[in-house]
Write a protein that binds this DNA or RNA. Structure first.
Lengths: 206, 206
DNA sequence: CCTACCGATCGGTAGG
DNA sequence: CCTACCGATCGGTAGG
């Protein structure tokens, strides 16, 4: 009963609370993405859920805390993506390709969260900001390590691995700016094509 | 006397007005970058200049117009960069390399403007937004054309040139996020190293 | 978790 | 271009 990671182990009370939080986050993500954080009142978020503002304050301490939750979800989706691949026992160039795919997919599936984090950084409280930035640094570190490993084994040819990690991170993260669901390319197509570019960028021999 | 593009041809009156506008923009850029647009009052901008708010309203119609001016400068610096290179009569792979250098340099020299544009898009009025977005599309078009040309002449090997242009645009634009003046790398070093990565990404043969 | 409200903030302007 | 101000907005909460 201490296990809060497994939904089915939660009591009804906690499960209902979780559901309500999810609905609040969903509504806030849509509105913050569409109008911007400061241009969205909590009254508007409440209205979309057909409740009133104190409903939100029962689940989040303040507007910046709600924002921090959204931003954390955005960045942790990218971190989860790299973590899923990083320990796999496959050749380093295949690992980079997989990271590319998973990372792009995570960014595009969490497009709104990533956009909100990128735009609204200045509206986070210092502790929320620090927590989230730590994830960003962890991501860069893991990606740099892969590139380093590929360099050492002669599979990649990169002059500055840390810079290359930032370049790859930017190339992928920026896709939240231009990607349109229901546009020319599916998430899978973008993921696969950007991964090829990432391997080229790393000077991978095929 | 109709020529407003040449500073020395302006009357004193117009020149003073231009100077004042510049100082307002500079102060606003620093504060919007540091605190965010909505968290910066025009009183704070005025205070930094040791004037009062109506001084600003003598030069800009509204807060969103001031923002639009800043964003337009950011994006037009990138557009100028590509325009300086695009017509040069040099091999296509050299042209791409030069575009990389100039583009990175433009982004890092206008880091605050680019950051503000990326973050504060939702605070632009529709017409300001449209004007600025047109520049973004023009940039993408010109870059795509270069990649297309390189593909045709067998110098590049790109599956999807439009997507590659977006990838390169993202890789470079995102540098506003992580670049620190007085950090490990100078603007020139970043420009040169990212350009190499861009050529690799395009599958350029050397 | 709703009703009702407060208190502070701030873009914009009238008047000079 | 300053002084002085307005009018609207909105995050947050008291009371029930």
């Amino acid at each position: 009963m201490q296990d809060t990671s497994d939904q089915s182990a939660l009591g009804i009370r906690a499960e209902v609370a979780r559901l309500k939080r999810e609905r609040i986050v969903e509504a806030a993500v849509d509105l913050f993405y569409e109008r911007g954080y400061e241009n969205t009142t909590l009254d508007a978020v409440a209205e979309r859920l057909e409740v009133t503002k104190p409903f939100i304050y029962a689940h989040f301490g303040s507007k910046p805390e709600l924002l921090a939750e959204i931003c954390a979800r955005g960045i942790s989706s990218s971190l989860d993506a790299i973590n899923r691949v990083v320990t796999r026992d496959i050749p380093v160039e295949q690992r980079l390709k997989e990271i590319g795919c998973e990372f792009v997919t995570a960014v595009l599936r969490n497009q709104k969260h990533i956009a909100i984090f990128t735009r609204e950084e200045k509206n986070l409280l210092p502790d929320g900001f620090e927590r989230i930035n730590a994830m960003r640094r962890e991501f860069d570190k893991k990606l740099t390590d892969i590139l380093e490993e590929g360099n050492r084994s002669g599979k990649f040819d990169i002059e500055d691995t840390h810079l290359a990690a930032l370049a790859i991170g930017g190339l992928v993260s920026w896709s939240y700016v231009w990607y349109r669901p229901f546009g020319r390319l599916s998430v899978e197509q973008v993921a696969s094509r950007l991964s090829v570019m990432i391997l080229n960028l790393a000077g991978a021999k095929d």
